[in-house]
Design a protein around this nucleic acid. Structure first.
Lengths: 216, 216
DNA sequence: GAGCATACCTACTCGTGCGTAAGGTTACGC
DNA sequence: GCGTAACCTTACGCACGAGTAGGTATGCTC
């Protein structure tokens, strides 16, 4: 105990805000590797270079800690996307910039994405938080489609729009996942591929073209 | 103890195969509701109308049990899809039938889908098993696209094909998820919507049309 | 350089839930 | 009608990990 103190070159004493970020960094890392339940508070504390009671003192229980991670990563992502897609651009340009920002973010924050997408999905308490975020994205995409539709004088039911938007968001998430698993892959290129699938398909739909059976 | 035996109208003694299915049914149900870790073996045993040691005797540890669930549900799903999409039909017809079968399956087995898709994704040990299944689907879809491409005299890199296939599969999964959360939604209609997005987009790509920047 | 707040630690308690040991009961062949 | 094997039970051991109690060092203010 005394030995420990003397052998260590005096511990850094850091202000709360800094330590909180370190803890969150560690938490995101561990949660993404192990998953929510398999991750232990001990490992997180250890990884942050701090002891467990500090984590409890600053960030609260394990669930609260996870929500804090979710929140930080989610906010970062949404900001990255929102900052890129200015609302007064043409629809395809907005979509393109949004996708670029999105894949760029995932490529740069693979751990954060893993927490957001893979972990939060399963467990009830967090699914809600995540669903809200995703809902906002879907809404934006649906709004974009609707805008483009009206501009070309056509109209479609709200549910249809939502479902198409959902499909596009889902495809993007899936590719993001693919990107996270392929370190050699390029975010920009992935975004281009997604853009091709999304926009060309959406564009056809916007023109009123549908696939033969059950035009609906 | 004796009271218990006499008060119960003699327990049904069932053959192993039957009990195993009951256990798997219960396990899928509980896993889907609670998630892998939150689910307890006690609850599963209880729900199956059997005691815990029986579960261990027949299906092994919790992980093994989960894998068994994954395997059964996965196999059922793959069979449903494979049975619907005969390989000698035109590409769009195959895609359409595959999608119908897929969404039909999800609509009818929401619990199974929840286990497959939401739970297995997060935790390392199962992700591999799941990735294999998904990989097979992606391969089939990519094969379909490739076939259609060659038929129209064009050619595309293998990675590009895979990525597009991945996006389509991801979009379908996402819509399946949406379907699972909206009990009032119709599987057939959802399949049609997906078909529209997928096929029209894919069709454009197959024709060599690409979105302006970075035609690549 | 005393006092106080804040950062930080070691070392516990205690619930929860996996997996098992040891024994009871029913069917079925001979 | 009796053994034996498969079915099924209650009741426990034990590890692991969330969360806490209580104490120590450090810097800041006056």
């Amino acid at each position: 105990m005394l030995a420990r103190v003397s052998s260590t070159p005096t511990f850094k004493r850091l202000p709360r805000a800094v330590r909180e970020q370190q803890m969150l960094d560690a938490a995101v890392k561990v949660f993404s590797r192990r998953g929510f339940h398999a991750a232990s508070m001990d490992e997180i504390a250890d990884d942050a270079g701090i002891s467990k009671p500090m984590v409890y003192a600053y960030l609260g229980t394990k669930e609260e800690l996870f929500v804090a991670c979710l929140h930080r990563e989610g906010t970062r992502m949404m900001e990255a996307i929102a900052g890129a897609a200015a609302p007064d651009l043409p629809a395809d340009e907005r979509l393109w910039r949004g996708l670029r920002a999105f894949f760029g973010f995932v490529g740069a924050h693979r751990d954060g994405w893993a927490v957001l997408y893979r972990q939060a999905r399963g467990s009830q308490p967090f699914a809600a938080e995540l669903a809200t975020m995703r809902g906002r994205v879907v809404e934006v995409v649906a709004g974009m489609l609707d805008h483009a539709l009206r501009a070309s004088g056509r109209e479609v039911g709200a549910t249809d729009l939502e479902v198409v938007a959902y499909a596009l968001v889902g495809a993007s998430e899936s590719l993001a996942d693919w990107l996270a698993d392929h370190p050699e892959a390029d975010a920009e290129k992935t975004a281009t591929r997604m853009m091709n699938v999304a926009w060309l398909g959406a564009d056809q739909l916007l023109r009123g073209v549908t696939w033969p059976p059950l035009a609906e």
